[in-house]
Simulated assay, not measured.
Amino acid sequence: MATSGLVVTRWWCPPTIRANILRAFGARIGRGVNIRHGVRIHWPWKLTVGDHSWVGEQTWILNLEPVTIGADVCISQDVFLCTGSHDRRSPTFEFDNAPITVGDGAWIAARATILRGSSIGSDSIIGATALITGAVEPGSVMLGPLATRYAQREFRL
């Protein structure tokens, strides 16, 4: 946590050094990966990122279980990948966790949320602010919520 807070998440830490520090803590990071500043990774040893992928500013990877990101993936700013949850029916509120997989060539747009047990198929697009709770077929386009017609008319420029 200290290394992450003092070095890895800072804007002045070059992406190559950031990737090397994450590797030192057990992350499997491919060649040419660009992990931008402000990215939070809960447990580096449960993270795999394929070659030439990009993880945008302020992304949070809460990986209580493994997160696997393929090659040539773009994860935009403020994305939340969350492998953890709780069993609300359990009297002890036990964990109900599951891994997340993002296939090669996928694009997850700004502020999207990917929840536990989700798999994003190769070459899929997850739109800005979308909420994903399961499997997305390869080549799919999943959009986030749209503004209402009233709001669209009201705020036209």
Rank of each mutant, 00 (worst) to 15 (best):
P44I: 05
P44H: 10
P44T: 13
W45I: 00
K46Q: 12
K46S: 05
L47W: 10
L47I: 13
T48P: 04
T48S: 14
T48K: 08
V49T: 12
V49N: 02
V49D: 01
V49M: 05
V49R: 01
G50H: 09
D51I: 06
H52E: 13
S53Y: 07
S53Q: 05
V55Q: 01
V55D: 02
G56S: 08
E57P: 00
E57M: 09
Q58V: 03
Q58I: 00
Q58C: 10
Q58L: 07
T59L: 01
T59E: 01
T59A: 12
W60S: 10
I61Y: 04
I61N: 04
I61F: 04
L62Y: 13
L62G: 09
L62Q: 06
L62C: 10
N63F: 02
N63I: 10
N63S: 03
N63R: 03
E65N: 06
E65I: 00
P66N: 10
P66A: 09
V67L: 06
V67H: 06
T68Q: 04
T68P: 03
T68C: 09
I69Y: 05
I69M: 08
I69G: 04
I69C: 02
G70P: 03
G70V: 07
A71N: 05
V73L: 09
V73M: 08
C74F: 09
C74L: 15
I75Y: 01
I75T: 05
I75C: 10
I75S: 01
I75V: 15
S76L: 05
S76K: 03
S76A: 15
Q77M: 13
Q77C: 06
D78T: 10
D78A: 12
D78P: 00
V79E: 00
V79R: 02
V79M: 04
V79A: 06
F80C: 11
F80V: 15
F80H: 11
F80P: 02
L81M: 15
C82A: 14
C82F: 03
T83I: 11
T83L: 07
S85Q: 02
S85T: 15
H86A: 13
H86Q: 10
H86T: 12
D87I: 10
D87T: 06
R88E: 09
R88P: 00
R89D: 15
R89Q: 15
S90V: 12
S90H: 15
P91S: 12
T92G: 00
F93Q: 11
F95T: 12
F95M: 09
F95S: 11
D96I: 02
D96H: 15
N97Q: 08
N97I: 11
N97P: 05
N97K: 08
A98K: 09
A98F: 08
A98L: 08
P99L: 07
P99T: 08
P99A: 03
